[in-house]
Design a protein around this nucleic acid. Structure first.
Lengths: 354, 354
DNA sequence: CTGAAAGCGCTAACAT
DNA sequence: ATGTTAGCGCTTTCAG
């Protein structure tokens, strides 16, 4: 019934078909598409017309073989279900598209092994790679970075170009906000041990805590998702503080939800601030105060960077590019409720942990 | 300082290098990898050893050019930020990987135009395509389906293989559940007009309503996200019913949230059931009762199907494959609270809309 | 079972 | 500005 049952011979139209029908050499057809300007305007026009008529479509594979460029870059993410990556991917896609590149998304599903094997296959087929958070070792990353242009997001790896957010400033902003509100004792809900960002956030928090005279405590590590936040709540309620900073928004959201379920008010009894500013941060109740990361910009920046490297630009393996952050204040933070605040009143004075 | 500054000649190791070093013909090396069995066991072993030694890695592009198979399939999704697709993609990836294929994820960003242009480029570079919900017209889909194997998810398109969920049964289950609880008047919060699934759900709901003697009303269309649910709430509260069925979980979640904010209890005053059973359905409070779609299975099924078509299998363009659904009952549904239930008591008796 | 040779479709020097 | 001629790295007949 449909026409598609008929043609058993899907002979692809090649450059030669067009060349013959247009009365020019194959190379001219090629040039018309890949090197416009190096061909007479009217000839080019004719070629294009014929190409359109016969429905010619350049075979990207053949082109790739001869140019050694696939015009694809791989963006590796840890978990496609994590909303954190959505904006990053969008940015990457936008930057890539603008340069004529296609993004191949690889979901590592939080598995170091899967990430490596996926990359193993991909590395040969793409021109560059953006690692949007990686579970691989620095060594492994450095290794593949020797084969293809690689830039790492949200993590510092020696000898490999990186783009990170200003975790130090973010941590400071969060703590200053809390301190300004009157909180003197805050808990940090840590993310995965292997997370570079977690380390940065914690150490910056410690520094700021010292300066601001707030006592800081750490709980964790926890999985960086809502479930992890629920677990964190269990430990937290044992000896609560009036404020908490969580490794990321999902952890914070899980914590808040669990706290509320237990009858502990947010921000009435506990103020919570997260990191990242994922879309959900604005949807939960109360809205989550969080350190906003320029997700889209991260994707753009990282991708532009690989693109530059691909085009021959020197991989300025210097300091990582650091993107600015800002504090988005929503409903999850408020001045402490004296009655429930200091677990051990009269004792809390200054200093953070050593 | 690093070794990578030295080699200005990244000469790739080819089949020829291996062949020479192993003392066999290039074709033998090729066979060793692509056609094992057609080569003497010990020769093969030697080749493999040498290959490993020199770090040979087959160039997928060259292979693709000569075989006309890229071993990649494209999975097109509407919105990477929509959690609905996460599991589908996982399933697709699993099925693809099992068959030695790589998934290229294309995010259409809810844009018909972007979807088409992306596909335009991808179609030449992949062996098959899975359209996990598409905004394109049936005609456009049918068009590309003539160039490459395509299977459509969650939508019926004539002459194109599809895999859908049992919307009819899902709608029935939802309504039976509500009816069984004692609800006699339910509102359907509709999704996008262009959604095939929305049409199916609505018509099935109508049928079931007639049989169960529940009065059914429709509100919408609304964007299929949390924000849409919030909007729906505004209209809903004007003339509420004791129960509502939403086009999808996100809409339901937005509705519930908004209702609670307005002081309307769920399920105390209004029972809500969604569709899809996305991860968040189990995380919100109260948990969302929903018609669970076998997301992962959808991805698997659709992908296996394209794979079959790619391998030459006849594209059984018959009836769409329909996957089973089940009702997951959580906290968002309960027996109606007589006091607030029928907007106009004494009137509600039977029949649904025509 | 293994060699030799002919491309896959396109681009990239060389020539003209 | 356009035509010619080699390949890119791999698979695949076709012989031996």
């Amino acid at each position: 019934m449909t026409e598609r049952d008929v043609p058993p011979k899907p002979h692809t139209v090649t450059i030669y078909d067009v060349a013959r029908r247009a009365g020019v050499a194959p190379s001219t057809v090629s040039r018309t598409f890949s090197r416009p300007g190096r061909v007479n305007a009217v000839t080019a026009a004719r070629v294009r017309r014929v190409a359109a008529e016969v429905g010619y479509r350049a075979n990207p594979v053949a082109r790739a073989l001869s140019t050694a460029r696939t015009n694809m870059i791989a963006v590796v993410i840890l978990d496609i279900a994590n909303p954190f990556y959505a904006e990053i991917v969008r940015g990457a896609q936008a930057a890539a598209a603008a340069a004529g590149y296609t993004v191949v998304l690889a979901d590592a599903q939080e598995s170091d092994w899967l990430e490596r094997s996926t990359l193993e296959r991909a590395v040969t087929a793409v021109d560059g790679i953006v690692l949007a958070s990686s579970r691989m070792s620095d060594l492994a990353i450095r290794m593949i970075s020797k084969q293809k242009p690689v830039v790492v997001l949200n993590r510092g790896v020696v000898d490999v170009p990186c783009v990170v957010t200003d975790n130090a400033r973010g941590a400071r902003l969060a703590l200053e906000h809390l301190s300004g509100l009157g909180h003197e004792h805050v808990t940090y809900i840590a993310g995965p041990e292997a997370s570079w960002a977690d380390g940065m956030r914690w150490s910056s928090l410690r520094e700021s805590a010292a300066k601001l005279s707030v006592r800081l405590r750490r709980l964790g590590p926890f999985a960086p998702d809502v479930r992890g936040g629920v677990q964190a709540a269990e430990q937290f309620v044992a000896q609560p503080t009036s404020a908490v900073v969580a490794y990321n928004d999902q952890l914070a959201i899980g914590l808040v939800r669990s706290l509320i379920t237990r009858g502990i008010g947010v921000p009435r009894n506990v103020s919570v601030v997260g990191f990242d500013n994922i879309a959900a941060a604005d949807l939960v109740t109360p809205g989550l105060t969080t350190v906003a990361a320029p997700l889209y910009a991260q994707g753009i920046t990282a991708t532009r960077h690989v693109l530059t490297m691909i085009e021959g630009g020197r991989d300025r393996t210097g300091q990582p590019a650091v993107l600015p952050v800002r504090l988005v204040v929503r409903g999850s933070t408020a001045a402490p409720h004296r009655s429930l605040d200091p677990p051990r009143p009269g004792r809390g004075v200054t200093t953070s942990s050593p």
